[in-house]
Design a protein around this nucleic acid. Sequence first.
DNA 1: AGAATGCTTCGATGGCCATCGAACTATTGG
DNA 2: CCAATAGTTCGATGGCCATCGAAGCATTCT
Lengths: 225, 225
Amino acid sequence: MEPNISVVAGLIADPTRAKILTALMGGKALTATELAIEADVTPQTASSHLSKLVEGDLLQLRKQGRHRYFQLKGLAVAELLEQLLVMTTSAQSRVQTGPNDTRLQYARVCYDHLAGELGVTLYDALVAKGMLIDAGEQTQLTEKGKLYFGELGVDVARLQSKKRPVCKSCLDWSERRNHLAGSLGQWVLDYIFEKGWAQRDLDARSVSFSKAGLKAFKRVFLVEG
Amino acid sequence: MEPNISVVAGLIADPTRAKILTALMGGKALTATELAIEADVTPQTASSHLSKLVEGDLLQLRKQGRHRYFQLKGLAVAELLEQLLVMTTSAQSRVQTGPNDTRLQYARVCYDHLAGELGVTLYDALVAKGMLIDAGEQTQLTEKGKLYFGELGVDVARLQSKKRPVCKSCLDWSERRNHLAGSLGQWVLDYIFEKGWAQRDLDARSVSFSKAGLKAFKRVFLVEG
DNA sequence: AGAATGCTTCGATGGCCATCGAACTATTGG
DNA sequence: CCAATAGTTCGATGGCCATCGAAGCATTCT
């Protein structure tokens, strides 16, 4: 009648695939090789599992150069795995990690926009507030977002007239999650330096926020915490 | 690291066991033979599966005379199955709605509370009338709601003293919207049967309202139309 | 007590599938 | 171009397990 649920369950039932899925629960995208190492199998075996998981709509594949990044496909998959974890870790309390404000300060430049944990947080916050729509690789700026950035002083129409996409999600090197790229991402980084919230470090890649600058950044860009 | 989740998933992965589990989603306890017929296998095969499901803490066994009654063990199991149904029904188009399916979609039992279109309508109506506050997964019963249900004969204080949450929203697999779970949801379903407004169908999941019963239900629980 | 019903255990069979070695394709970097 | 890295497909192997026939245990009915 409905073998579908057993098909999905069957995908999770294999211990190796379960390891792959739980490894991806952090939200980070991982490469095929990394997942093979994580699951402690050869690349061939991992490849077989990964294609099945993609075929079964549990994972999403994003090709980037010679790498293939995998991540959980949609919130429903993560929730399903959560539910399974709830079942199996009955007595274990789910303790959240402590204040992550200190770790949040890790930030660096990716080409011309903000990357690192803070970049990812920014991206997530803008999506959560309805400014952006995360549609896989193609990120959309909503009408609400246009208004919001317009009030901050962005000439949205001018950005849109250029060839370069306004919004683009870029897979983060360290976080392996989306952060904001495109001309809007560039604008945000420029804005940060312009306001004096932060400055480039000597290695020219990492970005140091001042205490007040970080606070202002979070306030203006709707990042909670 | 944690093969537990693959173990649980493996229990659901077998099509026969999946049939058994979905048959038990009605909340009604069924005998081993009934489940064998439902899953279309011999009693020996069903027995093997059932012992595994009990061993894996997905089913609860109750011996009664020469019968062995099985039912889902706890709400978490039912929620896990619901979550799987949410995943699998979202992937495929909404066709194939025979007469039995439409009945199931209108009103059915989800473990121990009312689900389907009518369940969702009830939930929405209670929220609209200010009896409940929809706050994500944790639904709140308002003071007004406590008064209202108190007049219907609910011992709210007793429900609150129990471990199980009074209100809880449960995602409906056909409607994909919240319906009322928790001990209050259980009370509502009991009330419906107690008043004779409806009765369980043969398939043990769908709920048949009489014409007068439906009218009374809508009147008492503030559902418009 | 004897028969019937409900259910389980045992053992054999057959099919599915996870795994890895070997060989291949694809992308990057000198 | 060649070398290196990333990942895939193919084929063989081995193990796990769902299934059911046969037989056994348990409970109830008459």
